[in-house]
Simulated assay, not measured.
Amino acid sequence: MGSKAVLPPERRRELLGFAMEEFVRHGFGHASLNRIIRSCGMSKSSFYHYYESKEALFDAVVNGLTGELRDAVKVPDPDSLAVPGFWAEVTRMSDDLMGAAAVDCRLIDFWRLFYVPDAPAGDDGSLARVKRGIDDWLGRALAAGRAAGAVRDDLPPSLQGELTLATLWTINAWALRHLEETDIAEGQRLAHLQIDLLRGLLASR
């Protein structure tokens, strides 16, 4: 199959912006491709000139935000967390991310994509690849914490990872559902509470 044509940057950003809102609002299965292309004045034949399917469009949304945020948000190498002040560094990183989200709504848009109902879940999809990257970073960060003596070593690393992910995904899902009623101060309080919960679960005794 030949490669698809590439939209001009401005048109691409417009299309992906409408698509992101449609996916988040209606879920992947109920998202209307007609609504998306109509919102930016594109015909269906023109759309298929650039994208093979709605799933390809979803992948483009994920890839677009991931690429933009990779340059805008600096996430430290997890190996750098292998220091005595591990939990202070984790808290500082959380504060940095909250500060970035306060000035750049793309970070919030990015997290919203992880909670899109019935999003494409194939192992070769963009969202799955990003999740694997997050899982890998988290596993290395916890290993750094164990090396520093800050994270308990009496639990299997895979169990620690699953406990951490379950806590993060649950609190983030709640925060996104209540985004309209959460100001910056409350967001920071919840972020610190999240760290406190993780520390209670994982900190060495």
Rank of each mutant, 00 (worst) to 15 (best):
D154T: 06
A5V: 08
R140F: 10
I108H: 05
V73H: 01
A203K: 02
M98H: 12
A82P: 02
V90L: 07
M20A: 13
S43K: 05
S204R: 14
G27I: 02
D95M: 06
A101T: 02
P157L: 10
S94I: 09
L33T: 06
A102M: 05
F58P: 02
G41Q: 09
D153V: 08
E22F: 06
A148M: 14
I171E: 10
E22R: 06
R146D: 09
A148L: 08
C105S: 15
G125L: 13
C40V: 10
P156Y: 13
G122Y: 11
G17S: 14
R177K: 14
A166I: 13
V6K: 14
G2A: 15
A173S: 15
L176S: 04
V151K: 03
E14L: 14
S80L: 06
L193T: 12
M42D: 05
S46M: 12
G29Y: 12
R189V: 01
R189Q: 11
S204I: 03
C105W: 13
R38Y: 07
G187K: 06
D118M: 14
E186A: 11
I184N: 11
R199H: 05
F86C: 01
V116S: 06
G64V: 01
E68A: 11
R106G: 08
G149N: 11
E186P: 01
I134T: 11
V103T: 12
E21K: 10
L155Y: 12
L201R: 04
F86G: 00
V116R: 05
Y48R: 09
E89F: 00
D77N: 04
S45P: 01
D124F: 14
E52A: 15
G67E: 07
R177L: 13
A185V: 07
D109N: 12
R38I: 02
G187D: 04
L202Q: 04
I37K: 01
P157F: 07
G64L: 08
R152T: 09
D96E: 15
G2Y: 14
E89T: 00
M93L: 14
T91D: 01
T182Y: 02
V83Q: 09
A5N: 11
N172E: 12
D79G: 05
N63C: 08
R140G: 03
G200I: 10
V61R: 00
P9G: 08
G41P: 06
A100P: 06
D136V: 11
A191Q: 13
I36F: 09
G99F: 02
R146S: 07
E14M: 10
V90S: 01
D118H: 15
E162D: 14
R13I: 11
M1E: 13
A185M: 02
A166Q: 11
S94L: 12
G85T: 07
F110M: 06
V90A: 05
L165A: 09
V151P: 07
I195G: 00
R112H: 08
M20S: 15
A148T: 03
S32T: 00
A185R: 03
D183C: 04
A101P: 03
G161W: 02
V75H: 01
A141T: 01
